[in-house]
Design a protein around this nucleic acid. Structure first.
Lengths: 225, 225
DNA sequence: GCTTTTGCTTAACAATTTGATAATATTTAA
DNA sequence: TTAAATATTATCAAATTGTTAAGCAAAAGC
């Protein structure tokens, strides 16, 4: 479920719409934030730095278009995907032409399937990070295909091993404390013994045949090529 | 980057614009040709038979609109996608209304993201209308006739089996979470048991006699040839 | 209208993989 | 050196998926 590392902010004045969209996108594995109006959307955007922002065009206070223009003024949001939600009735050329700084638009009523497929395809086609592949030297970590590629060879890791390696490799050089690792890979509720991490680290080292994980005694582990 | 087998011709008198567009489209995997004016565009079009032609409206000599009209007279270009590039200032009703024989238009200044997404979506629209057949290696999935063709043989799958395979094959290599599968194939309202997906997967594997679906334990399934 | 077939789901069980632990060996830093 | 931390290994339980058969409803034949 937490496979997609993408944040989406939705702004709409109708709570029902917010919930429907939230439900469907969370089911897809996205992290969802919501806002009731343009001002709130801008605040949330600055706070959470979403990868995609969905703005209802007709909102009390600032319209979606005004909100979009304000967001685009901020360099932090030049690369953010912005899409509009519009009722069929106000589907003007302006929105159709996407001259508003938005990347796409959706018409209400929203079909969950269309919503999800559009969002997915936007991430797939527009996002600068087109593939969810993490490159670290000769090593590629493909979250989508759930495989490791080392020198062209596919290496298959079990889930915990994969998540653990992906975490470490997400910030090469950074030392992850054992606690951080436990929280990120196992979650906060699960309690496992002391040696569990070690065993998984060992399996990764074994399968990769590559000395890329360094032990920092008394502290944690780090990934380095 | 995936290689799209599509040719795009761009005509604009400003070399900078040509290069920006060329760069972005080539990065997307398109093959790009350029022309400095209307006459050159017509020559290049005849020579390379592009799938899409992008014409600046304001060009010395023939305007983009005149060029478009001339191209449309030639039967070779009746099915070619033609879009206009226009500055906001000369965004006349004529262009907006697309009464010119063009399929769409883009306004300058051009956002690379919008450009790429528009081009992609135009191709997507056309290709979907053209053939609802999904090719994946030796496998063809015909959404319209609801059949699978493998090495020339027709394989008939039941509806759920078909939809499941079509989903997985829509993005070869991508691991679909069980949740994603349930949402896409069964919908969000329906609740089915744990083993339902497995049973359908098994039937597909059985009927296809082909090891194309890989289990990623604890994660989901993926299609790979 | 009745029967047969087909498609879908479920349940029960088998097979497999994964992950955690314990026990032991080894390494490291003070 | 020595206590603490980590590595290694084997083992076992739990989680996950595979397989099969059966039940039922809807569709298709007769």
């Amino acid at each position: 479920m937490e496979l997609k590392n993408k944040k989406i902010l939705i702004a709409d004045d109708e709570p029902d719409i917010l919930e429907i969209i939230r439900f469907n996108l969370e089911a897809e594995g996205y992290t969802v934030f919501t806002a009731k109006n343009g001002d709130e959307a801008i605040m949330e955007a600055k706070k959470n730095l979403p990868d995609l922002i969905m703005l209802d065009v007709m909102m009390p206070g600032k319209t979606g278009i005004e909100t979009c223009n304000l967001l685009r003024l901020n360099p932090a949001f030049t690369d953010t995907i912005i899409i509009f939600l519009t009722a069929l009735s106000d589907e003007t050329t302006e929105i159709k032409g996407l001259e508003t700084g938005a990347d796409d638009y959706l018409t209400k009523p929203i079909s969950p399937k269309v919503l999800v497929s559009k969002i997915n395809s936007l991430f797939r086609r527009i996002s600068k990070e087109d593939s969810p592949v993490l490159h670290a030297g000769e090593l590629q970590i493909d979250r989508e295909r759930y495989i490791i590629i080392y020198k062209g060879e596919d290496i298959i890791l079990a889930r915990k091993e994969f998540e653990l390696l992906a975490l470490l490799a997400s910030r090469p050089g950074k030392v992850f404390l054992r606690n951080e690792i436990l929280n990120q890979v196992w979650g906060t509720e699960v309690i496992v013994g002391d040696r569990t991490i070690d065993v998984h680290i060992r399996k990764i080292r074994q399968k990769l045949q590559l000395d890329c994980i360094t032990t920092v005694k008394g502290v944690g582990y780090k990934f380095d090529l």
